[in-house]
Simulated scan of single mutants.
Amino acid sequence: MKINEKNLCAFAVSATPIDKEGYLNKRGELNKNFQRRYFILKGNLLFYFDKKGDKEPVGVIVLEGCTIELEEDQEQFCFKIVFHGANNRSYVLGAESQESMEQWMKALACAGYDYMKLMVLELQRQLDDMDETPLPVTQPVSSPVPPPRHRHNPFNKPESTTPHQRSHSLRSSNNSLRLDDKFSDGVPLSKISITFRELHNAYGRPILRDFNVWKNEQKLLSEKVAHASDNLISF
C-alpha cells in the first residue's frame, strides 16, 4: 500500500534499530513482473524503497494477521506474505539464494505481535514452573581437616612387650650396665630424668667393647691368613 503519513516516513529513515535489511524482488499488484526493492524490517513494519539510501519509502507492510509461506508457483527462492480474509492481498517476494530466503522468512514470521505474545506467555510459564520447583538443598562443603600428628619418643618404655619387639636392655655382661636395671624399678622411663652422660655410659661402653672384640678377631684372622701364605710359599 502507498503511504503518505509523515510519522511513518520519519520512522522508516530514523536511527532506530533495524531487525533486517536487504534487497528482495517484489511482484507488483497489477503488473505481475518482479521489481527490485530495498527492504527494511523494524519491529512489525516492513518498509520497502526504490533503492538503498532513499529518504522516503515507497510503501510499508504491517505484519499482523498474516502468515509467511513458500510460493511454489513462481521461480525458486520465492515466498509470500499472506493476509487471511476476504479481499486481502498477498505479497510475493523473491530472494537471491536459499539461505537468504530462509533468513527473511524466519525474520518476518517472528516480527508480528501474535508471535511476541506467544513468546511472552511461554517465558511466563517457564518462570512459574521454576517458582514451583523446590531447589535442592546442598550441604556446605567444609575444608578437609588434617589428621592429628602423634610424636613418638624413642626412649619411652612400652607398657606391654611382645616376643617380636626388641628389648630395651643392652647386651648383658659382668661389667656392663643394663639400662632397664638402672631406670626401671616399676617406674616408666618417660617419668625418669636421664642425663646424656648416663645414656652415653649405658649405650656407649657396650658398643665400644664389642668393637674392640671385633677388631681383635679381625687381627687374629689376618695373622692366620699371613701365616698360611708363608707356609704355601715355603712348600
Rank of each mutant, 00 (worst) to 15 (best):
65 G>Q: 01
140 P>L: 02
37 R>E: 05
61 I>E: 08
134 P>C: 00
15 A>G: 10
45 L>N: 09
74 Q>P: 08
157 K>D: 15
220 L>P: 04
152 H>P: 01
124 Q>V: 00
170 L>M: 15
56 E>F: 09
132 E>L: 13
75 E>Y: 11
233 I>G: 00
101 M>G: 10
200 H>Q: 12
34 F>W: 08
81 I>V: 13
15 A>Q: 12
218 Q>S: 10
205 R>C: 09
80 K>I: 04
177 L>C: 11
207 I>W: 05
94 G>M: 15
142 S>M: 05
118 L>V: 06
117 K>N: 07
3 I>E: 06
147 P>V: 00
207 I>A: 08
99 E>C: 06
98 Q>Y: 07
177 L>D: 05
114 D>R: 10
112 G>E: 01
127 L>R: 02
150 H>I: 15
155 F>E: 02
36 R>W: 12
215 K>F: 15
87 N>Q: 08
193 S>T: 15
122 E>H: 02
205 R>D: 06
31 N>R: 14
98 Q>I: 10
190 S>D: 07
171 R>Y: 14
132 E>K: 14
21 E>C: 09
155 F>T: 03
1 M>T: 02
116 M>V: 02
49 F>S: 03
184 S>I: 14
206 P>G: 04
204 G>T: 05
72 E>N: 11
89 R>C: 04
67 T>Q: 07
30 L>E: 14
210 D>E: 07
142 S>G: 04
